[in-house]
Simulated assay, not measured.
Amino acid sequence: MQKYFWQSAALASALTLIAGCSQSISDYTQLTPALKLDRFFLGAGQAYGVMHDWRGQQSVRFVADLCGEWQQGSGDLYEVFYFSDGRVEQRHWQLTQNADGEVRGTAGDVVGEATGQLAGNSLYWQYVLRIPYDGDTLDVTVKDWLHLVDEKNLINRTTLHKFGFKVAELTLSIQQLDANADCSALKQQVAEIAAD
């Protein structure tokens, strides 16, 4: 009986420790500068990223061009990715940012809707991404943390999950280059890649 008690106590302590270590978006409410998508993802930006597989080994690197247009809390974010293995891919996010910090988004390779919450200098959001895999496609759950470092620089840490297991991790830095840039050229490039 005593052995069972100590095993139960050890398990409860471990679960408490694990639960205590998990982060919440509310942890960042007081941090500045405040992240507002319609400010940071406005105009031209550039991102640099590295993907690691489930073993922690670097699998692919990329550079991405970004450009965003916003009007009254709704925005279009255009992205073109240049991968180290020669692939070029695009994504067109259609985003909404509400006054309470709720964020929603859709894109061509996102299944359903992405949902998240802004607080302080951070955004946490989650969605299901459909990716090319071995001649077919694979749906993975994406958990995305974005942290604004200063007005022009943001760090993004992403984990990808399948059947509840982490299968990859992505780290990228994003820099806003010119908030007044015209998105027409990148918008056209996104449309051309999507049509191929």
Results as ranks from 00 to 15, higher is better:
M1D: 07
Q2E: 14
A9F: 14
I18T: 11
G20N: 10
C21T: 14
Q23S: 15
T29R: 11
L31D: 15
L31I: 07
D38K: 05
R39D: 14
F40H: 10
L42M: 15
A44V: 02
V50E: 15
V50C: 04
H52F: 11
D53H: 10
W54H: 12
S59D: 05
R61L: 01
F62H: 10
A64G: 09
D65L: 08
W70R: 08
G73F: 08
S74A: 15
Y78F: 14
Y78H: 14
E79Q: 13
V80C: 02
R87T: 07
R87I: 01
H92S: 04
H92K: 07
Q94D: 00
N98V: 04
D100K: 08
G105Y: 09
G108E: 02
G108K: 01
D109V: 07
G112T: 06
R130Q: 14
Y133V: 13
Y133L: 15
D134F: 14
D136L: 08
D136Y: 03
D136F: 10
T137E: 12
L138K: 13
D139G: 03
W145S: 08
N153Q: 12
N156V: 01
R157Q: 12
L160W: 07
Q176R: 15
D178T: 00
D178I: 06
C183P: 02
C183D: 02
S184I: 00
S184Y: 01
A191G: 05
E192H: 10
A194F: 03
A194Y: 08
A194I: 06
D196L: 14
